[in-house]
Amino acid sequence: MTQSLRLFLSTEHVCGYLPGLMARSAFVDPEVGLGPTHYQHLLELGFRRSGDHTYRPHCRNCTLCLPVRLPALTFQPDRSQRRCLRDNEDLTLRIETELGDEHYALYRRYLSARHADGGMDPQDRRAFHSFLECSWLDVRFWCLRQNGRLLAVAVVDHLPQALSAVYTFYDPEERARSLGTLAVLQQLHYAADTGLAHVYLGYWVENSRKMDYKRRFKPMEGLIGTRWQELALPPA
């Protein structure tokens, strides 16, 4: 299936990871009927999804976007990550299947505070759903609450052999809790408990501030050419 897919190139746009660079992506033909097993194979080839669309960076003069994943069955949290787990023991996790007004209100606050110049409009309700949901995958919304108050939502694709972390947004006033880190730790725990091999984290871009948190998770594997290999990342 993946060998016969038709790809389309996007137009160039400003890179969202590194200043001064232009980016473009190769998209899988949207007319192709994908499903969980197909997408699992595409993840292994370095693709990601945004809404119903599946893509991979295909920039003219740059190959810095490195697909990365975590081996769930062997991962052990470090001291800082164990502290993150302890500091958030007062939160409850509920895995939900739909996005509603409560989630959208949190998303708006998050974008307004954290990504005001990121090209995403917090007022666009349609874009919110089309970005995070997917009509052909089992997408679940991992909701963290304190006494019923929604603090964070992690959008997670559940696949036959893995989880894929799509996006996490949280209450900007709760930044000290490291809720993005907590969400990844919870996904790793769930994957290990259910026998899933990996948690996919998207792309690692060296020297990108937005990606810096990913190197705190070790061991991390990257797709080098056509092989997944353990990475020797610099210390956090």
Score class of each variant (00 low, 15 high):
1 M>A: 11
9 L>Y: 06
14 V>E: 15
16 G>F: 05
17 Y>I: 10
18 L>V: 15
18 L>E: 07
24 R>I: 05
28 V>G: 01
32 V>D: 15
38 H>A: 11
46 G>P: 04
56 R>Q: 10
58 H>S: 12
67 P>G: 05
68 V>Q: 02
69 R>A: 03
71 P>R: 12
80 S>P: 02
85 L>A: 14
86 R>C: 09
88 N>T: 11
88 N>M: 09
90 D>Y: 06
91 L>M: 13
92 T>K: 15
94 R>A: 11
101 D>N: 14
101 D>G: 15
101 D>K: 14
103 H>V: 04
105 A>Y: 07
108 R>G: 04
110 Y>I: 11
118 G>I: 10
122 P>W: 08
125 R>Y: 06
127 A>H: 14
134 C>P: 00
135 S>V: 13
140 R>F: 00
141 F>N: 00
144 L>Q: 03
144 L>P: 00
147 N>M: 12
154 A>T: 04
155 V>T: 06
169 F>T: 01
171 D>E: 14
176 A>V: 07
179 L>R: 03
179 L>T: 03
194 T>W: 07
198 H>D: 10
203 Y>S: 03
209 R>N: 13
212 D>F: 10
213 Y>V: 07
214 K>F: 07
220 M>N: 02
221 E>N: 05
223 L>D: 04
224 I>E: 12
227 R>E: 14
228 W>M: 03
232 A>P: 03
234 P>W: 07
